[in-house]
Design a protein around this nucleic acid. Structure first.
Lengths: 123, 123
DNA sequence: CCATTGTATGCCTATATCGGAATGTGTCAA
DNA sequence: TTGACACATTCCGATATAGGCATACAATGG
């Protein structure tokens, strides 16, 4: 009942991919399923570290595990990234156009200035 | 010189948009520039809170400020979201297809099996 | 059953976040 | 100048993250 710190990293995909290491893992997994140790090695991180990140990714549903003998094969499940991608898509027009909102803004300015006679501009 | 905690929220766009409140701000700003107080009010947060989040967004370059008399108008600068969107785009084929990598994987299997006569399959 | 290999967890530390409340700074008006 | 309003910053507390290291757990092979 006091102050929360930060949203749990495990809460959603947005938080999960905020961690660079986790992003690397996801990218690697695009190449197919991999056992933990291999991931850890390829990414130059310790096994426990890999396991922990994989846990987070699993908890937000971005990866799936499958036991294969002694190994555990982690595989990508990118469906959870879709909403994130879509959310960002909502901003597409703001960067694809000219200069973010700038020109639009300038339009408004001209418009406004046309409606009330020249006054003082910005300070 | 020991363990880092978590990546600074101010480090990049990925981290900046991991915070729901910040996402709300960005969405609101799609509607055009706004003064702090208005943002705070519309989103039901305290003014200092809004200012802090705006600071972060400013530091990663997702918003711009412009002084307008007593007020400070914050405006969207979505360019920084583009790389994020693109990164996610790299996973598009994994969710748009049928079942993430599954079918693709099955394809490979069939392929492989076609090339070498039935032996032991995936042991 | 024991040893071995592959993973998951627990514990500890340093760091940094987010939120709240209070306070500083800046700008305009009278 | 003083006052009022808009916003920024600082200090505080609570939380939890990411890493390192050691260790527990699991599955397979002897």
């Amino acid at each position: 009942m006091a102050a929360m710190a930060r949203a749990a990293t495990t809460s959603d995909a947005f938080n999960a991919i905020a961690e660079p290491r986790r992003r690397e893992i996801l990218v690697l997994l695009r190449g197919g399923e991999r056992p933990v140790t291999e991931l850890a090695h390829d990414l130059g991180m310790s096994q426990p570290q890999a396991s922990k990140h994989l846990r987070v990714l699993r908890e937000v549903g971005l990866v799936r595990v499958r036991g294969a003998g002694k190994q555990r094969l982690y595989g990508l499940d990118a469906r959870g990234l879709r909403p994130v991608h879509e959310w960002l898509g909502g901003f597409e027009r703001f960067w694809s156009g000219s200069f973010d909102r700038l020109d639009e803004y300038v339009q408004d300015l001209k418009q406004a200035r046309r409606e009330e006679p020249p006054d003082g501009d910005d300070r």
